[in-house]
């Protein structure tokens, strides 16, 4: 069943998505599309391209066509324009289709962005490695065995690197999923609004319920990732501290190769200023002296275009066009 449209012809189109749509009813409406096509068939044959939408109804139809063609960004703009016209009849179907568009945008973002489960698994694995490295570092710091300290140091550095990479990946996934959450919340609002405006629209209600369940799952996933991120940050700090302590205990000749220039601060700020780094001395030279006239030329050169005169033409001056009509 599709949202009812009074006194207007409507053809429905049902599309099934492969993802997330176990129970999601995806109906799109061509609001008077068949009528428009029938009436405008000859005109369309004459014109190579369809004219850009002008009326709210045309915006709605354009948005619906774009939704069917999976041009989601364009569809959103068109449907928003249709809604902004505040046409009472267009509002519920436009909201319904806008909900579909935004849901689809969320799905696309999910597909493009990093997947939650592998990212989470990677984060958990990195956290486990960090735990093991921390344990080893604690044991090494408890004794005086140089070899164990060097081994713990090396393992700590490796775990820290992996932890950093995993943290970054989780952070990216969090951002991507957060954006999807925003999209889906808006889509759910659209479906709820459509159902509020048309209480007989069971599809909109159903879709909003399904979407709310998807949002709940997404929020759970986001929460899990956030917890994982917090845990990784904590472990990263502890690990950095342990690695620093190990580095302090290992004599310089015994340090593994590459350890001297591989501090965490270096990794964090690869292009930042080094500690103790100062700005280099300015170029040596004498201050240029300018006469008032030279200074005036320089200042003139920097003036805005409004005061700059255009060069005169070299050829013969042309007569102005004769005006047959009065100049008012």
């Amino acid at each position: 069943m599709m949202p009812s449209l009074n006194h207007l012809s409507a053809s429905s189109r049902c599309a099934r998505s492969s993802h997330w749509t176990g129970a999601f009813r995806l109906w799109t409406l061509d609001f008077g599309l068949s009528t428009s096509l029938l009436l405008g068939a000859t005109a369309l044959a004459a014109t190579p391209e369809a004219a850009p939408p002008d009326t709210p109804r045309e915006f709605y139809n354009a948005g619906t066509r774009q939704l069917a063609a999976r041009k989601l960004r364009e569809a959103e703009a068109s449907l928003e324009s249709a809604l902004a016209s505040q046409k009472e009849q267009l509002r519920p179907p436009a909201l319904y289709n806008l909900g579909l568009v935004r849901f689809g945008q969320g799905v696309e973002q999910l597909k493009k962005g990093p997947a939650a489960k592998p990212t989470l698994e990677r984060g958990q694995s990195a956290a486990k490695q960090a735990d093991a490295a921390l344990h080893q570092a604690d044991e090494a710091l408890g004794g005086n065995d140089l070899d164990r300290m060097v081994a713990a140091y090396m393992r700590g550095r490796g775990a820290r690197k992996e932890l950093k990479a995993a943290t970054e990946a989780v952070r990216r996934a969090l951002q991507a999923h957060g954006a999807v959450l925003t999209r889906w919340e808006r889509a759910s609002g659209d479906f709820k609004s459509a159902a509020e405006l048309n209480s007989a629209d069971s599809d909109a209600r159903h879709n909003s319920e399904v979407l709310d369940r998807c949002i709940a799952k997404l929020v759970d996933s986001l929460r899990e990732m956030q917890q994982c991120l917090n845990g990784m940050c904590d472990k990263g700090n502890k690990l950095s501290e342990a690695v620093k302590q190990l580095k302090g205990r290992i004599p310089a000749p015994n340090m593994p190769p590459g350890a001297a220039g591989d501090d965490e601060e270096d990794e964090d700020q690869p292009f930042g200023p080094q500690p103790g780094q100062e700005e280099g001395p300015s170029k040596q030279g004498q201050e240029m002296t300018l006469s008032p006239e030279q200074a005036g030329w320089l200042l003139d050169a920097y003036k805005l275009d409004s005061e700059r005169r255009l060069p005169m033409g070299q050829g013969p001056a042309a007569d102005p066009k004769e005006r047959s009509r009065p100049t008012w």
Binding site: R91, D190, S193, L197
Partner: peptide, 9 residues
């Protein structure tokens, strides 16, 4: 709001 509804944009 864009629409006269509780969950409007």
């Amino acid at each position: 709001r864009l629409t006269p509804t509780l969950e409007a944009q």
